[in-house]
Design a protein around this nucleic acid. Structure first.
Lengths: 125, 125
DNA sequence: CTAATACTTAAGTAGGTGCTTAAGCGTTAT
DNA sequence: ATAACGCTTAAGCACCTACTTAAGTATTAG
């Protein structure tokens, strides 16, 4: 009998997990891309995607669960719009890591500067 | 006989696809997170992850294929480091969409301002 | 009314993802 | 040399994802 593995811990929370998982699919990114140009119906989102409507609806659910997209149904048409706060959350996660890396580079620079004229890898003083 | 679906078009290129797919996994994000604090060996990356080493190596391959991480083997130790340019690519993709959305909001605002003396949406005078 | 539109739900499937264990290989320590 | 270390590869399995088709539900048009 095989052991099952657990859902895995999510650094930054489960919300970030849903966000990046939503952005990981090309079709879903195309939908997000379209929605940055303004609200759209499900049919309008489906039009350029060469896939069936149910497939698009499933993608839409993923996007909604992630918080990237909201939608409201009026009459028989569902209108979708982007949720910029979610977009910014993902952006922020990456920015935080990038700046953390830059800071650790800074600390390395200070360390090397404090060490005096010890030669380093890559370039010589 | 069932029809197979195609790999799907990638808005922004296949590189972005690999990037977001790499970031979509919590374990992989944990590895990225660790690497922002400085270079690490494969064992060091594996230590906090409660999974076998081969699993970590597979994640590492995904990260390398995406361009997020580079590694070099010296002796029997492989040292991994983050590749900030890739991190910035992903960040930029999101930023581009967010600003596109903001600009379409601006255009809506100008349109409404030009249409009459109703300056904003959401609240009535 | 009926018919068309715009989704929506349900059920099923090929292929991909994320793990596992076991065995192998080059490098360093004793 | 022998053994330990650090990874690496291979094979296999459970689960998940991204689709499909078919049938169903409101809503609007004629």
């Amino acid at each position: 009998m095989l052991k099952r593995y657990e859902p895995a811990p999510a650094p930054g929370g489960a919300e970030i997990d849903l966000l990046f998982q939503a952005l990981a699919d090309p079709s879903r990114r195309a939908m997000v891309d379209r929605l940055t140009r303004g609200p759209a119906s499900v049919s309008e989102l489906a039009a350029p995607l060469s896939m069936s409507m149910p497939a698009v609806v499933q993608h839409l659910h993923v996007l909604q669960d992630s918080g990237l997209v909201r939608s409201e149904k009026v009459g028989r048409v569902r209108t979708c719009s982007i949720q910029p706060a979610a977009l910014r959350s993902a952006e922020q996660w990456i920015a935080d890591r990038r700046t953390a890396w830059e800071q650790s580079l800074d600390r390395l620079g200070e360390y090397l500067a404090g060490q005096s004229d010890k030669p380093e890898q890559g370039s010589t003083p």
